[in-house]
Write a protein that binds this DNA or RNA. Sequence first.
DNA 1: ACGGGCCGATGACATTTGTCACCGCCGACC
DNA 2: GGTCGGCGGTGACAAATGTCATCGGCCCGT
Lengths: 204, 204
Amino acid sequence: MTDRVRVLLADDEHLIRGALAALLALEDDLAVVAEAASGPEALAMAAAHRPDVAVLDLQMPGLDGLEVAAELRHRLPECRVMIVTGHGRPGYLKRALEVGVRGFLPKTVSASDLAGIIRTVRAGGRYVDPELAAEAISAGDSPLTPRETDVLELAADGSSVAEIAERAALSPGTVRNYLSSAAGKLGAENRHAAVRIAREHGWL
Amino acid sequence: MTDRVRVLLADDEHLIRGALAALLALEDDLAVVAEAASGPEALAMAAAHRPDVAVLDLQMPGLDGLEVAAELRHRLPECRVMIVTGHGRPGYLKRALEVGVRGFLPKTVSASDLAGIIRTVRAGGRYVDPELAAEAISAGDSPLTPRETDVLELAADGSSVAEIAERAALSPGTVRNYLSSAAGKLGAENRHAAVRIAREHGWL
DNA sequence: ACGGGCCGATGACATTTGTCACCGCCGACC
DNA sequence: GGTCGGCGGTGACAAATGTCATCGGCCCGT
């Protein structure tokens, strides 16, 4: 038998991370060699312990799971990356695949499933939760241009057009044009509904 | 020694719930006698197994943790209730205490802490995470009147004043008055920023 | 009995936002 | 070389929103 699969576990919730580590430790072909509670810490631990598989939570302080995945791809190309997420918004899946993530699953899977998927990924396979995949396909790509997305993002906290314009270094009129266009593409009545819709699709 | 503490575990994320159950099973004075993945299921399991302590996740499908806690208080008064939450917005803590919750903690606690807190609560004690408590105190009570809160809630998805008025069975002018007043009290530039602020404080 | 607060409403007004047409500049693609 | 799409901008107009004063009704506390 080969060496055990070396796993890095990153999740900001100690309770979850600890519990997960304990569960995975029960599998005798898996070894949790590092744990991290934040994005930057995950990168540091990965560099130090060179795991075979990194299991990353999507929402973490500092860098989120996707950003960590993107970094790992460059710094540690031989390390396979999996993302685990609580509420799976479709857009994230697409972005995850773009940065080379091999596994994408919701936290509703069972522990034994998780262990199995870790083995699959370790062996070079991929796994995407069927339900999340279906959502992603039905949601499709964002119809927004990069700039529209930027501006919508700046509008997300309820700022006025003037504030958005200043933060984006644009003219207020241009900002309104982008917002109007974005709302139109998303079928929203106004920019705030547009923000909500874009969020739901993971386009924000 | 008395019987072991009978624990009900409710969390919609199988992975977490299973992992937690496994961890708690390692404590020889605790016994996880029931698990649930939704609010209604938690109530049913509680009725069937009459646990000593119910550990509820705050966000669950169907009924959320607070609603379950409120129901349990009536149906199973001798059952102590604890709430575990990922992102702890202050207002929830206050509402939790109002419905008789004995423990309120973030998922960043360690498993051994959780076990200890379960024992504390079982013995009639209380536990509130210090950080969440501090936030709750500094956040204080909502300055909004009940009606203002209603209307702000209806505004939360980006609806227009006309839609809100219809859904609330109010005149559009009245809706604008409430929104303006709410935004003023919250120090917001407009209702959308007001929604964000109220959300952050757990007042929504 | 009175004041105060919340509720619901109206009217008026200023400001913000949404929408549209149209402009020039670029870079990509055919 | 021409076309198309994204980017950034202007101007104008209509619609939605925010703000304020003011009203009446109601209930609660003193």
